[in-house]
């Protein structure tokens, strides 16, 4: 059975005299390497140039707010249950009087942490979320010196009121 059309039959015939000189083969090899000298380079100069990413790229998460700026998350825990890498932890709290402009429903997440080193960016949390609260975005997780800094809390995850993050392509 032929598994691939790239397979080559290996021949073990003796080398001829001219092949044993190796010089023609070496010249050929030099030709191949020098042709690469003038080829387009594959390097992307990362900090200055970023590789284009698709619109539905699954990158760093965001916790969304609604139109009035209230947090959508109700700390139901479905994302944590769905998470195959067990990267998400949260603690729930009850909304007090006077906090209606902060949280959409009576329950909210007092702490919400995602360990970016555990996360595999599969997007199951976003599928599990019944409140449209968590989304993956096209942003990258930035490098850190300390492992602790990769545990993102609410301060990094919740979008800023005056700096909303566009997740329209992922909502389709």
């Amino acid at each position: 059975m032929k598994l691939t059309n790239r397979s080559v039959v290996v021949s073990k015939k003796e080398l001829t005299w001219s092949e044993k000189l190796y010089l023609p083969a070496i010249t050929q090899g030099l030709g191949i390497t020098i042709s690469h000298f003038f080829k387009k380079k594959a390097t992307v100069q990362y900090p200055e140039v970023e590789k284009p990413r698709t619109e539905i790229w699954r990158g760093r998460h965001v916790l969304k707010r609604d139109e009035e700026g209230r947090e959508n998350c109700t700390a139901c825990g479905l994302c944590a249950v769905a998470c195959p890498a067990e990267a998400i932890t949260m603690e729930a709290a009850e909304r007090m009087k006077g906090e209606e402009h902060l949280y959409r429903e009576e329950k909210y997440a007092a702490t919400y942490e995602i360990n970016m080193l555990r996360c595999i960016f599969c997007g199951l949390c976003e599928e599990a979320c019944p409140k449209d609260a968590i989304y993956l975005t096209d942003r990258l997780v930035s490098p850190e010196y300390d492992r602790q800094d990769f545990i993102y809390g609410k301060n990094k995850l919740v979008e800023k009121i005056d700096d909303r993050i566009d997740i329209v392509p992922r909502k389709k």
Partner: peptide, 10 residues
């Protein structure tokens, strides 16, 4: 530099 250029790098 030569090594990089021959290997399609910068």
């Amino acid at each position: 530099k030569v090594a990089a250029f021959l290997q399609d790098r910068i």
